[in-house]
Structure formats: structure tokens, C-alpha cells
Design a protein around this nucleic acid. Structure first.
Lengths: 196, 196
DNA sequence: TTATAAAATTAACAATGTTAATAAAAATAA
DNA sequence: TTATTTTTATTAACATTGTTAATTTTATAA
């Protein structure tokens, strides 16, 4: 049972979270600051501190919403394929597409320093295991049908998640390679080889 | 031929570069600011602006020095091995060791935003191709002896560089996995699979 | 309706990057 | 050598951003 007070407080937090999420998606992390978020939420900058320990806490609360959205997008793409390696490939391309569309979210999830010790462990784990969650069903299918061993699945997931993070880091943060076409070609080349 | 003026100017830049490099190695990127660097260099904070466009330019000038040091460390390790896959593995472990020892340098090379358009392209490329340079000799050897094809070498380098960046990003930035032992085990597992 | 509690706002401060104005030092010309 | 000019370095100042303190406004209870 939630009291009136709790409901109101939850709503207030929601206004700030929504404002921060919108700015993150539209203008990226560098545009997020106490004053811009509070203004968009319709309150003064100091009001934010009545509902969040600091700006960092607020920003990291946005993470799980974004991860859900990214997973949903990958799942939607998955629905078009049969379980298996092709579907993993397609899911990873969808994941890459999400972060290319919202570079600010990539920055937040993989790059921005976390000062908040609470959000720290839980959200870091949530991010780290994103690829695991998206590909879990397919890997289980591959193991069940004796296409790959359980050990191979574990190793492949590790390489998959690290190489996706690295690929996106280089491209979004350093523009390496410096054209989109090559980036897409590299993505495909990498996925094909890892899942061979 | 360098004039007196050029020599003196080069020296001055050197003092600031050295100061910034020391802070980067010791306390990391967060401890680098105009005032701390200038103080260590023995000058006032505004003097820095007589020799560098801004703090960003100075900080990114440090990059190539660090990359050289990292390559040298990998080369030293390499000298103990015969050319081939084992040597690539050993070089990559040495590279990982360097960045684990100096997380501030990893942050600078892979994470920190570049605002300087000049340093941008050149230093981004230098960073992106670090793994290529370190492994070049070995891949040439493998191709020459028909152990792998030239195409496989290209793809393997791509996966190697991305998965190393991702592995380090997750570990240094998010403490995933959250113990050193597992990190080292993952590093080995990943390298073994990629170079299989 | 008035006293009290809660919430929101404005004012203020600290840290940092950067520029402008001033001072000091060095170089040059008489 | 001394005066002038140029170069270099420093201090002062300002803008931005995160955060806290003091104050005002709003809601609640007697």
C-alpha cells in the first residue's frame, strides 16, 4: 500500500527522471545539468535535491529504463527470426543501432563515471549483462540442439559483449572507423567471425 | 634548425606536458586541472594558455608518449617469445597490464571526450591502431607461413582490438567482473578463443 | 483562523576553465 | 649603459556548474 505522500513523491521523481531522459536522448549527456533538468521538469534547481541525493543518482536511475527499451527493440527484431546464430547476429545489430541512434545513452551506460555507490553495483551489472539477456534464449537453443557446447556459449558471450562494447566505444567516442558504412561492415564481419 | 625562441618554447611546453603526465599516471584524469598542472610545472595557471590552446590540447599531447611506452612494454615482453599466436597473446596481456596499472591513461586514451579537432583525428587513429602496431609482426609471420589467411588476420585484428577495449572498459570503468582474478581469467579465455 | 510542518525557491559558495588587465622580465635600440 | 619596446608571466575577474543554507511559500492540523 502506498500512501499519498509516497505517491506524490514518486510522481515528483518521475518528472525529473522524464526530463533527464529526454535531454539524454535528444542532446546527450553533456547537456544534462542540475539547472537544465530542473527547468524542463518545471521546478527550481534546488528542488531536485529534495528527491535525489545528487545529479549522478538521478542520471543513473534513467539507465534501467533505457536498457529495457534497448532490450525490447532487440526482442522485436528477434521475433522475425528463428532461434539460432542468425538471430543473435540480428539482435546485436539492433543493439548497435540503438546506441548509434542515442549516443548519449551509450555514453551514460558505458562511459560516464559512477559516483553513486548504490546505483554502482546494480546498474553496472545490469549493463554488463545486457548482451547476456538479449542472447540467452538463442544460446540455450544452440546448447539444447548440440550445436555448441555450454563452455563455448559462455566464451562466445564474453567475446560478444566485449567486442560490441569496444566497437561502439571506438566508433561513438573516437569516430574510428570514421564512416558509417565501414562501421556497419566491421560490425557484420565481427559478428560473422565470432559466431562461426 | 630551431631558433632559441623555438627551443625555449619547446622546453616550456615540455614542463607542462611532464607535469600533466605525472598527475595522469599517479592520480588519474580527475586530478588533472589547469591549476594542479601549472603548479606542478612551477608556473601560474594562466601561463599554461601561453603554450596551449586549452587544457584539452595539453592533455591529449600526453597520449602519444603513453602509447609509445605501452608499445615498448609489449615489445619487451614479446622479445621472450617466438613470433606467432602465443606472442600475440603475451603482447595483449602486457597491453592489458599497462592500462590496469594506469587506469587514468586508459580513461584518457579511450574514454575522455576530445574537443580538440587537430589532436582529434591523429591521436584517435593512433589509439585505434595500437593493437595493429603491436601485433603486426606476428600476423605477418602467420600469413607468410600460411598459418592463417590475410583476410583472417584482418578480421582477427578487428575482433582483438574491440574485445580488448571492451574488456578493459568494463573492468576499469564498471568493475565488471568485480575481482581481478576473474578479469585475468576472462582475458585469457577471450584471447585463447579469438586466436584459436 | 492560526500555528506548525513540508516543500520550493532564491541566495550564496566552491571548484574549475578561461580571458583581460597588469606587472615583471628580457630584448633591443639609442 | 640607459631608455624603449616587446615578450612573458601573474593576478584579478568572470562564466559555468554542482551543491548547501537561508528564506519564503504552500499545505495541514488544531
Amino acid at each position: 500500500m502506498t500512501s499519498n505522500k509516497e505517491l506524490q513523491e514518486k510522481r515528483m521523481r518521475g518528472y525529473f527522471i522524464e526530463a533527464a531522459s529526454e535531454i539524454l536522448k535528444g542532446e546527450g549527456l553533456k547537456a544534462v545539468n542540475v539547472r537544465s533538468v530542473s527547468e524542463r521538469a518545471g521546478y527550481s534547481y534546488a528542488t531536485l535535491y529534495n528527491y535525489f541525493k545528487d545529479l549522478n543518482e538521478l542520471v543513473f536511475i534513467c539507465v534501467s529504463g533505457f536498457l529495457n527499451e534497448c532490450e525490447a527493440m532487440a526482442a522485436e527484431q528477434s521475433a522475425k527470426h528463428q532461434p539460432g546464430k542468425d538471430r543473435i547476429k540480428s539482435s546485436m545489430k539492433s543493439l548497435a543501432g540503438y546506441f548509434v541512434q542515442y549516443p548519449g545513452i551509450f555514453e551514460l551506460c558505458f562511459i560516464e563515471r559512477i559516483n553513486n555507490p548504490v546505483a554502482n553495483q546494480s546498474s553496472a551489472k545490469l549493463i554488463y549483462e545486457l548482451v547476456d539477456r538479449i542472447t540467452q534464449e538463442d544460446f540455450e537453443h544452440l546448447i539444447r540442439n548440440n550445436i555448441i557446447s555450454s563452455q563455448t556459449a559462455k566464451t562466445t558471450t564474453l567475446i560478444l559483449k566485449n567486442s560490441m562494447a569496444g566497437l561502439l566505444l571506438h566508433y561513438l567516442n573516437r569516430l574510428q572507423p570514421n564512416d558509417y558504412k565501414t562501421f556497419i561492415a566491421n560490425l557484420d564481419e565481427q559478428l560473422t567471425a565470432i559466431l562461426a
